[in-house]
Write a protein that binds this DNA or RNA. Sequence first.
DNA 1: TATTAGCACTCATTAGTTTAGAGTGCTAAT
DNA 2: ATTAGCACTCTAAACTAATGAGTGCTAATA
Lengths: 370, 370
Amino acid sequence: MRALNQEDLEERKRKVLQFVIHEYIRTSNPVGSNAISTVSSLGLSPATIRNVLSELEREECITHPHTSAGRIPTDKGYRRYVDSLVDLQRLAIQEQTRIQSEYETRIREIEDLLLQTSKILSSLSHYSGFVVAPKWERHIFSHMDLIPVSSHRFLCAMISESGLAKHFIITTRTELPRESLRKIVRMINESFHGFTLQEVKLQITSRLENLQEEWKDILSMAKEIGQEIRRFSDAENELYLEGAGNILSLPDFTNPHDFQNLFKMVEEKHILSELVGSDWDEVKTKPLAKGTPSKNKSRSRVKVRIGSENKNRALQNLSVISSTYQLSDKTVGVLGIIGPKRMEYSKMISLVDYVSRMMNHFLSEFDKDI
Amino acid sequence: MRALNQEDLEERKRKVLQFVIHEYIRTSNPVGSNAISTVSSLGLSPATIRNVLSELEREECITHPHTSAGRIPTDKGYRRYVDSLVDLQRLAIQEQTRIQSEYETRIREIEDLLLQTSKILSSLSHYSGFVVAPKWERHIFSHMDLIPVSSHRFLCAMISESGLAKHFIITTRTELPRESLRKIVRMINESFHGFTLQEVKLQITSRLENLQEEWKDILSMAKEIGQEIRRFSDAENELYLEGAGNILSLPDFTNPHDFQNLFKMVEEKHILSELVGSDWDEVKTKPLAKGTPSKNKSRSRVKVRIGSENKNRALQNLSVISSTYQLSDKTVGVLGIIGPKRMEYSKMISLVDYVSRMMNHFLSEFDKDI
DNA sequence: TATTAGCACTCATTAGTTTAGAGTGCTAAT
DNA sequence: ATTAGCACTCTAAACTAATGAGTGCTAATA
């Protein structure tokens, strides 16, 4: 028997870890040395496997719940698996067509698209799907208008160049004659055309103050309006979250404490919204496997967070697979799925990747449509 | 010992049932004959109590989970209790002030009021609070406007006389020049002023069609707009639901199946929205106990549904206490709490009653404000 | 005649015991 | 370097026994 060098040993270790993870994902039971020896095609005896396993355990990639149980992957093990062991594949054609057909319901608004996407993510993963709505502040201001509702209340509509519309009711303490209203609206529209909405938000109050001279009479009203616009621009990103119930029915979830955490997350969606916030800044790309280049030239931006890698307590026993989406070449939002750590990463990464590409596709159509 | 007549026996039965329910609510454990004999002030031996209990059991007001357990109330038992045994009281002053202080956060819009109310209901009951938003269709149409977003898209704002505003984006296939747009808006505003929004919804398409002669050029566009308005008027009532997580942590909830049902309810709020729909039509009033007349002259409209009295499956193990609220003297919405069957009905009924009065109070202020 | 004491009976709960089997780690043989 | 062999550990399941809370019935009682 020829001597094995270091590389071969590493290779074997990798294969064993991969097998453990695959088997654990499949059966949800700890995997023993016997099973690996018999079922895998490594051709090694249980005893040898045991040596490999104890080494993997020393490296904290696996543990066992108790002495007489098989091994299960740790978060670190999953991480290693996702980083280098998972075989990334293109999504099956059959699933691609399924997704495309799901998108065929009439989508009029961006909101419809976001909702439908989160539903698709949920129903194809059988886990929970989410979409964080486009980040309002990144858009370019086009125009706004105020419609009187009553003497002190107005419906304020703000439209971005990409066609996103935000609307909310504002209330003023002072009464506003129609003429002044029109003047204020015209002024805002003229001075902010072409600015980002973040700039509008930050500068609206100060701008309105600078016009003191000629606007003395309606200054205080303009100020009030500015404040209200600011207030609504600060609102957190909207989040679409579907299929959270799916996670409950998983065999991995038995602890009632986990239930409560999950519940909290659904009730206070902003928890999750904050959580994925970091995706905007630091985006670690995970290219698809060689030999399967994507149709679209752009790189996949799928990110995986496993269990304790999530900062949020409610997600300590879950994994989040997310990607970003763009509008007019700017990253404006995040979408993805939330599922058990014990999930088919290969398939799920492909799914999220594919759906995020579809989102980009549809969003660019919206963009063209303007 | 003097002979007891039928009435005295009935009275005793009532007292025993009341004691069982109170004790069960307090401890969440089945109540035995011994406990009743010792703790209650009836002065009867366990054996006598047992006779009463078995009679109550024959009447299906109580059961026991197994032979050697004490008694617990059935839905029928709770019903009897709520109908005639519960001591209705005014809410404690301390709680009244707590509620009033909770309402002191700045409430600008009806939406704020609804959200805040559902939070109050949740936090004071320690269960789940809900408010079904005002029924749009019952309001009187005041005016509407269309703001162009892009060539094919408009922000449509509809304002009711009571100041409720509804706004949504509509998309048309054909392009609309500004002039035609203004014409259509003027026409709608003139012809529907004073109508209910339901009438607007039902008649808008047919009205637009009747104007054929003079409007030939913009008829198809007007039609499209009419259809879109119709579509958005059909949208279901919005629902505010807070504190559903509170229910999970109750000792009454152990069955994972119940968890799932509850989850479903939170995810698909319209389930609940449908559920309380019946409150608009058939309202069974439950006046407060004599001797404690309410400050406000109007009758309390609190309704209690216990366990299986709820049609919805998700609520089979829960009780719903609800009341309606008015705007301009019309019943436009429902609010209440959802909790375990095993809850302090007296307190909760008072709470819902009081909060619904507060809602009416604030809403009438909104109304005046217009 | 209504009430109650007495008693046999039921059944959930808990603890204790045993057994089976899955899986490990170590050692010595190959 | 690999593996067979074996003692060891620990869980899960199944069985047993003891406890005790609560009932329903009957006969005695005020």
